[in-house]
Amino acid sequence: MSVLLEARGLRLAFGGVKAADGIDLAVMRGEFLAIIGPNGAGKTTFINMTTGYLRPQGGSIHYDGEEITGLAPRAIVKRGIGRSFQLPQLFTEHTVLQNAALAIAARRGVWQPFAPLLSVGVIDEARELLSRFGLDGIRESRADTLNEGARKLADIAMAVALRPRLLLMDEPTSGVAASEKMAVVETLARVLREAEVTAVFVEHDMDVVERFSDRVAVWSQGRILALGPPGEVLRDPEVLREVIGVAAPHA
């Protein structure tokens, strides 16, 4: 497998707090990489730096061989990196179908002032996308009326609509009811594998990590404490003491 995303020596501090203190990480094409670690360890900061929301104070990020450090989010999205959010960023006054359609239109080119958004081609693709995510039943619902599981899936569906090659997801299961969590992740993993999307996801649920990740990166105080297959990393004594103690399995 070749390297798709590579971070070298990433540094970023907020005042005295080091959110990234020399992050070196290579994400391999096609893998599902989980990021775990306590709150404040710098997991979201890594996603924010990779997607252009924050500019690192040091180090570099390369995507598919090209340096993307400090580029604006729009420029990064256009290169094939998508993201979803811990707090889903849906257009709350639009329906789920319109949300999906808008993401599809964004990919195709939004600069059409007179063709309707819900034109035949876009509607068909939006319906197909929502059906892959199991969201058919709620496509006419307004985005601000959904439950958390549906909101998370719709949020990720919008990122997938852009056809990214790399998708960074910030806590895709947080706030999702325990009873729906595995179903949400199953759906997600299936869609992403089908679309051949490389995924990096921040996760607190160790069951989800163990079941769905190819590798796990353990974050602690802006550094990567351990990196490897979940079977090894989640049994590493240092990881167990430093991190899992905070985010224990079945917690």
Binding site: L90, T92, Q98, V110, Q112, P113, F114
Partner: peptide, 19 residues
């Protein structure tokens, strides 16, 4: 149109538009 709907998107989720 996509442009008009994106305009309404500025009101609710401008961040998403950029992403």
């Amino acid at each position: 149109s996509p442009m008009g709907e994106a305009l309404a998107g500025i009101k609710t989720r401008e961040t998403r538009l950029e992403f």
